[in-house]
Design a protein around this nucleic acid. Structure first.
Lengths: 210, 210
DNA sequence: TTTGTAGTGTTAATTAATTAACAATGTTTA
DNA sequence: TAAACATTGTTAATTAATTAACACTACAAA
């Protein structure tokens, strides 16, 4: 089960969400082509991804929704769960915290950090906000292993350094500053401007080609 | 210049931001390996991307920052510019609007939409908020061609339909509902939970392999 | 039963993306 | 000036990701 393609991991996460919705609406089995349609991909890709994680069904009534959720959970989740922290609790930080917490049982945002004294020690979006100055201590005390960066771009590098020194193992960078991290740390970056510009480029293409 | 790889488009957008920073700090030329280091990729990839867009330099002093910015602009931007709208002005919508506007001259968020009467007709994050009910009219009046979705997941499909009917050509979907759109419309989807779960998976890998 | 159908699992082929290799050419240094 | 060097541009090789092809089998219908 080692070495799943990165893209597959992303899709598994998406499948699971869809499967959880199915479960909630009482659907117990789902065909590969149904799952595919819901995600705008092909049934082959769904089957291939599911093959890679070692799940299979003897029935021809589609996959057992509950079983598949559990298998995906076995891949993505850890038994004990992982804790995350959001650093910088502006609009984006708040959006992420509020949106995420409670959605996954094995992954929790346990703390937020900010420099603004008015925010410190308050509960924001359901999570306590700590002083940036206490970052190292809180990360260790609460056993946080994932950092989500929503600070201003000029602080990203410094904060990252501190997070890594505190023992964090994964970083999700929403600032516009590209980061580099030591080899033991996994880094995922996302920038909204790039996404919007990509859309703009393809919109332009459509306009000019017609 | 037709048919640039999708990944290349994303990187060009990122290069441009870095180049703009260089320009602001008075740097006039930049080597491929410098640009590469700033983005944690290889110099070959930078050179290849730049080759694909048809820019080249005779000097061995690196690329001319200003010229390269212009070439990338020629690829991504349209002459007249494009307008965008943010649908659903909660925390995430506000974050995007505030973060984005003013950053790019050829791409503007011209309107936001919401159902909350308290928000309607107010200026939020620097942009006027319109009633969801007026979506079709406003999109046409303001010549908006890109829609950014930050509504609750259960409304995503309906809003998308309305946006497309109004003539929108590109959609950036931040809701957790996967969408499908007609062939003439470009769709880019991003989901935070997937990103966090991906990070969690790789953190887990690091933990168990050591 | 038997036959046809619709679905899964998997290998092989294709396509997309990255990386390596290296020729060409300014630039610097002896 | 000549030699060594650093840097670009580009083709070729490699690797990653997707898609096609198809064998296999449970199920439904005749």
């Amino acid at each position: 089960m080692n070495k799943l393609p990165e893209k597959t991991i992303g899709r598994l996460s998406e499948y699971r969400r869809t499967l959880l919705n199915c479960l909630a609406s009482g659907k117990t089995h789902i065909y590969s082509h149904e799952l595919a349609n819901l995600h705008n991909i092909t049934a082959v890709q769904v089957r291939r991804d599911i093959m890679l994680i070692g799940y299979s069904t003897t029935l021809k009534k589609g996959y057992d929704v509950k079983a598949l959720i559990d298998v995906i959970g076995g891949i993505i989740d850890t038994k004990e769960g992982l804790n995350a922290a959001v650093v910088g609790i502006g609009n984006l930080g708040k959006a992420i915290t509020a949106y995420f917490n409670g959605k996954r049982s094995k992954l929790l945002i346990k703390a937020t950090f900010d420099v603004n004294p008015e925010k410190i020690n308050r509960v924001i979006s359901g999570v306590k906000c700590y002083a940036m100055a206490d970052l190292e201590k809180v990360v260790k005390d609460l056993d946080i292993s994932i950092g989500i960066l929503t600070v201003p771009p000029e602080e990203a590098a410094r904060v990252t350094e501190r997070l890594i020194m505190s023992g964090i193992k994964g970083i999700l960078n929403y600032t516009s500053t590209p980061l580099n991290v030591s080899p033991g740390v996994y880094l995922e970056e996302y920038d909204m401007i790039t996404s919007i510009e990509k859309v703009a480029y393809f919109v332009k293409q459509r306009k000019t080609e017609s």
